[in-house]
Design a protein around this nucleic acid. Structure first.
Lengths: 121, 121
DNA sequence: ACTGTTGTCAACCGGTAGGTTAAATAGCAG
DNA sequence: CTGCTATTTAACCTACCGGTTGACAACAGT
């Protein structure tokens, strides 16, 4: 199983069934059997999906009598949003600067662009 | 290969190496060999990663002499952000309403909410 | 016309993801 | 204690994923 949290979250949401579960859990908590009902897979398969979501920190389970309601934990979304926004912004900034650059030299001279960088995580 | 775009994007970003490539491409376009340099995998492996990113719509390639610079396409990020924000908001709305509910009945009467779990005592 | 560089394609391999069935665990109702 | 319901665990199977090596295509430079 993927070591880093970001990989776990992205990987968890890469499955349509799991995304659908998240969508339904955003509306209301639900038990495993309730969650399994709409899909034509076994309850065990759904239980596995739930484990993936839980390992990704997307859901939590609380013991309530013999049932174990599943609850959506929305905070983890921030992890993704922050990652995405970071690079989206960076890319947009690039375009902006490229625009400026092109506008500032209609003669086509190459002004030796900044040196390459190493990559962050 | 995953049919729906959302699965493809999430799946593509579930790999740390691919996320790192995206991070570097946010800074500047790069060729396959340049991209491969920091990692201790073969160029072929990187080429495969690139194909995944491309199928997800995250990068595009433009033919330039014998090189094929890779370019980050940031628009696809919106697809994810929209999905995430939608359910995050929905979940937060749920909490808000639950708060209101609890605040609105200090007598402890149960107004028969939807046949839900977690009935407060 | 060769040679070197850049990149892809094909075949293969080990590991893991997602599904199944069958058995085990946990709690509630008689 | 027995049985019913809800859920997880175990064992297994198949398919895909990420990596490899080896061969090949396209182009630049000499």
């Amino acid at each position: 199983m993927a070591a880093d949290p970001l990989s776990r979250v992205f990987s968890a949401l890469a499955d349509p069934t799991r995304r659908d579960m998240v969508a339904r859990l955003a509306v209301a908590d639900a038990t495993v059997n309730e969650l399994a009902e709409p899909y034509d897979v076994t309850v065990q398969a759904v239980s596995k999906h739930l484990k993936v979501l839980q390992d990704a920190g997307l859901v939590s389970r609380t013991r309530e009598a013999q049932r174990r309601p599943v609850h959506l934990e929305a905070e983890v979304f921030d992890l993704m949003t922050r990652w995405i926004e970071r690079y989206r912004r960076q890319a947009e900034e690039r375009y902006r600067r490229l625009d400026d650059l092109l506008r500032s030299m209609p003669d086509g001279t190459e002004p030796t662009p900044p040196p390459q960088t190493g990559a962050p995580t």
